[in-house]
Design a binder for these strands. Sequence first.
DNA 1: CGGTGGCTTTGACTCAGGTCAATCCATCGA
DNA 2: TCGATGGATTGACCTGAGTCAAAGCCACCG
Lengths: 229, 229
Amino acid sequence: MCSYSTPSELEVLEKTKFYQTFDPGQDIVSEGENTATLGSIIDGVVALQKTLEDGRRQMVGLLFPSDFIGRPLRPVAPYDAVAVTPVRMCLFHRTKFEALLSQNVNLERRLLEMTLNELDAAREWMLLLGRKTAAEKLASFIMILARRASALQNATVKNGLEVPIPLTREAIAEFLGLTIETVSRQFTGLRKQGFIELSGTRSLVLTDVGAVAALAGVVQEDALTDLTA
Amino acid sequence: MCSYSTPSELEVLEKTKFYQTFDPGQDIVSEGENTATLGSIIDGVVALQKTLEDGRRQMVGLLFPSDFIGRPLRPVAPYDAVAVTPVRMCLFHRTKFEALLSQNVNLERRLLEMTLNELDAAREWMLLLGRKTAAEKLASFIMILARRASALQNATVKNGLEVPIPLTREAIAEFLGLTIETVSRQFTGLRKQGFIELSGTRSLVLTDVGAVAALAGVVQEDALTDLTA
DNA sequence: CGGTGGCTTTGACTCAGGTCAATCCATCGA
DNA sequence: TCGATGGATTGACCTGAGTCAAAGCCACCG
C-alpha cells in the first residue's frame, strides 16, 4: 500500500506519508483509542490482540511487512496492535487517507480485497482455535512460518528449510490460545518425534514436512489459506 | 442489500435479483465450490462453517436476515454456508453483481463496511474460542441472541426478556467450539444458578441479565461488538 | 569472569471439558 | 394410543491441557 500502491494519482498519498518506528512490546494502536493514523508495515512483525478483563489475552491477527494496519471509516480500534519485533511503519493521517479513498476507486477496491483476505484468514484461525489440539495448533503455526520463510527466498516448503521464529513462546501461546508451558511441551514433542530440529529458541529446521503438514491438517499445498492476512 | 439497497441506480440490481428457499441443513454454498450466486438473507438463520478432514466442525459465522452471503471478487468459498432454519434468500448472479459493483461506488463502499464489521465480529469470536471457559462461551452466546431479540422488538436487554434459540444444541456446540454435552450442562448450570429459565429447548427467559452479561465479559452495554456480522 | 534477570523447559499434579453410555422427552405417523 | 425417531439431558469416567513450582539456559552488565 505504501511501497507498492497503484501508481498515478497516488502522489498525494506519497506526500502525506511519514515513517515511524516501534520497539518490541510497544503499542502501535490501543484498544478503544481514537486512532489518527493508519498505514502499512515496512519491517517487523505486529500482533493484533484482544484482552479480557482479567488479563487473558488472545492474538487475533499477526501481520508482516506489507500488511496494512488500521481501519478506514472506523475511528476506534476494537483491539491492540503491538510490535512483536522492532517495527518500521509507513503511516498516513486518517482524514487524508479517507479523503483519498473516496476519490480513488482502485484504492478502495484494493482495501476491500485485503479485508476479504483478512476475513478468510480470521475464519481459518477460528477453526484452529475452536477445534484443533495443541499439537495441531503448533504444527499449523509452524506451517505458517515455513510458508512465509520459503516465500521470502522464492523456494518451496521442504525438508531442511530453516524457519526463523519471530515470536517469544508467550506470543505463540497467545496466538494459539494455549499456555507457554503447553507450547514448549509441544515443541519438544515435535522434536522428539523427529519432525523438527530446534536451533535455539528463535529458529527451527524442518526435518519431516509431511508429518508437520499432516498434523496441521493441510491437504493440498494450494488449499492453504495463510492464517495471516 | 436486497431489500434496502441504496436507491437510484440500483434498478439494474433489482431486475436481476431472484429468490430461493432452503430447508434446514441444506447447503447454500459448499466449500471449494465455484459459486455462481451471492445475495442476502430475507428470512431465517444461516451458519458458515469449516470442517476438518476427520469431521470436526467449527462455525465461523452466524448470519441473520439482512446479512450478506458470498464474496465478490472471489469465486471459491473457503467454507460452507448451511441453512440452520428454513431460509429465504434474495440472490444475484455473480457476474452481474460484480459488473454493477465496479460501476457503483456506494455499493462497493457498503460492501467494504460490511466486511469490516464481519472482520470485527470474527475477531471477537476468536477471543471467545481461544480464551473463554464453557460457561463464559454460553453466556456470550445468550447475550448475542438476547441483543438480537430485544432489537427486533425495539426494546433493551432486560430481565424477563424471552429469547428464542434458533439453533439446535449441536449447532450451538459447533458455534462455541464445545461438545453438545457441555453445552447442555452449561445451560442447566445457568438455570440452576437462577440466571435463566428454560422453556423447552428452543427458547429461554433471562432472569439475571447482570450475571449473564458479567459471565460473557460484557463491560458496558455500548462496548458490545456483536459476534454476528 | 560471575551474577542477574528474562525466557524456556521440565516435572508433578489438577481439573475443565471430552467421551461413552444411558435415559428422557417431544413430536409425529400409523 | 402407541411406538418410533431425533434431539436433549444426565451420569460416570477419562484425558488433554492448565497450574504451580523448580530448574535450566543464555545474554548482558558490572
